[in-house]
Design a protein around this nucleic acid. Sequence first.
RNA 1: GCGGAUGUGGUGGAAUGGUAGACACGUCAGACUCAAAAUCUGAUGCGCGCAAGUGUGUAACGGUUCAAGUCCGUUCAUCCGCACCA
Length: 854
Amino acid sequence: MLVEKFNHTVIEKKWRSYWDTNNVFKTSQDRTKKKFYCLEMFPYPSGKIHMGHVRNYTLGDVIANFKRLNGFNVLHPMGWDSFGMPAENAAIQNKLHPKQWTLNNIETMKSQLKLLGFSIDWDREISTCDKSYYKHQQKFFIDLYKKGLVYKKESSVNWDPVDNTVLANEQVIDGKGWRSGADVIQKKLSQWFFKITKFADELNNSLESLNAWPEKVKLMQKNWIGKSIGCEIQFSLSDSAKKETLKIFTTRPDTIFGASFIALAIDHPLSKKYEKSAEFISFKEQCYKIGNTDEAIAKTEKFGFKTDYEAEHPFITNKKIPVYFANFVLMDYGTGAIFGCPAHDQRDLDFARKYNLEVLPVILPSDQNEKDFEIKNEAYVENGTLINSDFLNGMTVEQAKSTVIKKFEDSKKGLGKTTFRLRDWGISRQRYWGCPIPILYREDGSVVPVREQDLPIELPEDISFDKPGNPLEHHPTWKFTTCPETGQKAIRETDTLDTFVDSSWYFLRFCSSDNDKAGYATDDAKYWMPVDQYIGGVEHAILHLLYSRFFSRAISLDTEFVVTEPFTGLFTQGMVCHKTFKTEDGQWVYPEDVVEENNQTFEKNTKKRVIIGPSESMSKSKKNVIDPQSVIEMYGADAVRWFVLSDSPPERDIQWSDEGISGSYKFVQKVWNISEKINSIQEKKELVHEVQNDLDKLINKLIKDITYNIEHFHFNVAVAKFYEFINALSKILSDNEIDKEKYQSIFKQFLILIYPFLPHLASECWEKITKEQNLHCQNWPVFDEKLLIVEEINLVIQINGKKRAILLVKPDISEENLFNMSLDLDNVKKFTENKTILKKIYVKNKLINFVVTE
RNA sequence: GCGGAUGUGGUGGAAUGGUAGACACGUCAGACUCAAAAUCUGAUGCGCGCAAGUGUGUAACGGUUCAAGUCCGUUCAUCCGCACCA
């Protein structure tokens, strides 16, 4: 039989335009239906889509389709995270306006996403650089300002003195600006902050409720928030002149009797006293010289500067404790001051050894006795019993902590306190291509938010990048205005918002994307939120996800509908990797420029030898990228979708390979061929009962397997089950080419199951059988438990746990019979002869294990 | 340094404590063909054996169990996160 190939170019296009013109993926307004909000992290419009996008959106699309077929009202939208620095860099390089650059990219990428046949409701498309979006964001900013969740303070930033701009941490490479190469300096700037720390405890505690989040992500957020429970202690200080008090923070107040020094951060307020001291200045310089890479800091030796202060021990009268500035104490954590207990903290021990300070153990390990216990080069940080500690002696660490905190509180020398590692979120960016911060600085010095009716504060389009720095700052007129309330002259804030703000509420906007009055409508949010399934890269595990959790809480605070957790389910997918190619002189080569001759690889044009390197995540810098569009054109969207779902579990990295994609292509063709073969059956005779039964069982098993594996995100296993089914079906078919109706009824169920994966192919096959274009609105098939029962089982016979035979039996034969039957088998006899059977184990319908003497 | 994850054929990977290697790629053999491509069939962890079989095998070592890739302990390797956080 000659069948025409599945012509993906024509057929896939046909279905995309059918879905489009018939609004098949438009979100239903029916609010009586159970909802499902399926969201993938929206892309930054950088130019073209890459394989990572394809994988991300394919995963989401399977879920969205699956839920639709299961009767849910599904919200599956798409938008653009379209503010950000690359647009400005492109503008500078290509003399193209950031807006135009961005809009061009969006157009390209949208058309590419459409090629993949994703079931996206494009009517809800949003773009964060559009004023219809950022106007609401400005309103949120003002709301937060009024709620006291926004404030301005001096903070130090990475400043590139050549480009006159603030750099993000990742743009500072070895202490130099990534573009100018200039030494980056720390500059104090007045910047806006969101008070995310106000929510620190809640963000931390609420992680527990996120059952459908990967443990790994929760742990990363927990560590990032860094809650630590401890206590603040007031020490009395005295130098020759006067008495002062000093607050320190510790999580180990139980070790107070082992305190042998106090250490301050070098920029602690008390350093004022020494700012003219040459010795102190040189100490400070020594600290700064170490550099700011994290690793350098961690490996640096601990050293300090001794002050002439002495602190009084809170419980031991007349005990004086020396006070140092130390290079390992940070001003922005706790109070910027600690007490050191060298016996039970490694850093403190290193420091104490260097300056010959007392090392007094106060915690005794349970396996040691007090007389012999000694601290050598390692501090003892585990649990134990308190010793050398007056009223704490004999207690456990936990008891000692609570006892001593109570004592501090009673004597007003300290207070139980919890601190967090999490800092407030600095949101000012000295950049053009971002959301303007709606703030006016009036002539009289007052700072006021813009009135709501004056929103949006639009970005001017007539800007110039001729001068370095922020074009908003240089604009001849934009920032000069008058205050509408007082008529005073005023200057606009020229900083724009961090683009992480844009992505911290876009999921709410999707619920009400065309609402002009508000960022989102309560009714819409009540119905759609939270996002049931969120899918994206693990690189956003902390910042984006934490900011979103904060921002949605903050903006909905004191409203009728408070969004606590915006994403109930989270899935983080792995990256797409590909082999790397390099010439012998170290130049990266694009895969399509590599040619093979006589088992050697060469660069197409220069004929230079090419070395094939290890598979690494696709990146433009290594040129190991595959352009999705060209692959779609060659193999079709369905084959590409199939490829990114097969083989690797979605949470792991996947290796792109030419063999892999052609394998996927073959599968698409194979399904098509079987479909055509079924439809062309002429012989009207009915299949014999046994074969019908086999087919029923086959599809029934598939329904069970696919349902289970989609629900558990085992898409690679689902793919394998489809292969198994098609292999088995094709075998049965080639032996029994009769009874078209039976095969079609089986195949129709298969098409519903595979539609989420291969929507174009499945729809076409469906239409061929049913003459209908309605596969997308079928019901997900249900499996029948009765059909899962097998007539014959392979009962494994083990002797001492080793497989020795297989018994083909009907289920539910009595245990005793099975034992006798198996003991009759030759191979079983061989291993039981002259042995005593000590024990017989029977696992129903699975195996028998005879335990015999050796 | 601290925290976490992972380790299974030539490769990607399957496997509610119960037949390890499903499925796919690759390789080999065969069919079809003048030939090639495509397609189809079969084989494929390693050792021994003509075969039936049998030994061995899930990073290494040890333990629990009738039975361990799976549970527990120690070690090694790789990857990720945090990094002087008091």
